Amino acid sequence: MPLNIKDLAVAADGFGPGERIPDRHAADHGNAAPGIEITGVPAGTAELALILHDPDAPLPHGFTHWVVYGIDPAAPAVPAPGPVPGGAVREGPNSLGDQAYTGPQPPPGHGTHHYYFWVYALDTPVVGEPSREEFLGAYGDRVIEQNRLVGTYSA
């Protein structure tokens, strides 16, 4: 399946591409998940997934802050402070092993980190609540389109 990256878009409440993520979303300043809006969902999308990942974290695979499955392509949003009403959203484990949002919190003196809010339009529903690594391994070839919003944060 050819990968299309021109129409799908992701936006967050309170910051834009390359901008600093507001403190209220940081782990030590309220830990409130930002509202996420997804537009340009391609035809044939069965489900959307959202993964918030920090590749700058000093760990072999970076740090995964949030894993969300079951986002309805007909109502593609994850409003703050929680999941879509009606139980349409499932959370997978983050790098702490929690099925929840964990905001930015780079180690002291580690500089500015980049936080990737990846959105994936899938041609099939995700089964269960896989981790980021499990999801990419099992569903990488089921992605119709993907895009990301990158925000920054430093302690």
Rank of each mutant, 00 (worst) to 15 (best):
A33G: 15
L149Y: 01
R90H: 10
R20N: 09
P108Q: 08
D13Y: 08
R132D: 06
H25P: 04
G103P: 09
G140W: 08
E91G: 09
P93L: 05
V89H: 09
A77S: 10
P58D: 03
P34E: 09
I38H: 10
G140H: 04
G103L: 10
D28V: 12
S154L: 14
V67Y: 05
Y139G: 02
I5G: 13
I71K: 04
H61G: 14
A12N: 08
H65A: 12
G97F: 01
G137C: 07
A74T: 12
A27W: 14
I38V: 15
A80T: 14
A43P: 10
A74C: 10
T39Q: 05
T124C: 12
R24Y: 07
L50G: 14
L50D: 08
L149C: 07
E19C: 12
G140A: 00
I144D: 00
L48W: 05
A9P: 04
P55G: 09
H65S: 12
G97H: 06
G18K: 01
Y116K: 12
E133W: 14
G140E: 07
A88E: 08
P22E: 00
V119M: 03
G111A: 11
R132G: 11
E134W: 01
N94V: 01
S95P: 08
A12P: 06
P93I: 11
G128F: 02
T102N: 09
Y115M: 04
Y69S: 13
T124V: 07
D72G: 13
L122K: 03
A77N: 09
E129C: 13
T64C: 10
S95M: 10
P2G: 13
P2V: 05
M1E: 13
H53S: 11
P130F: 05
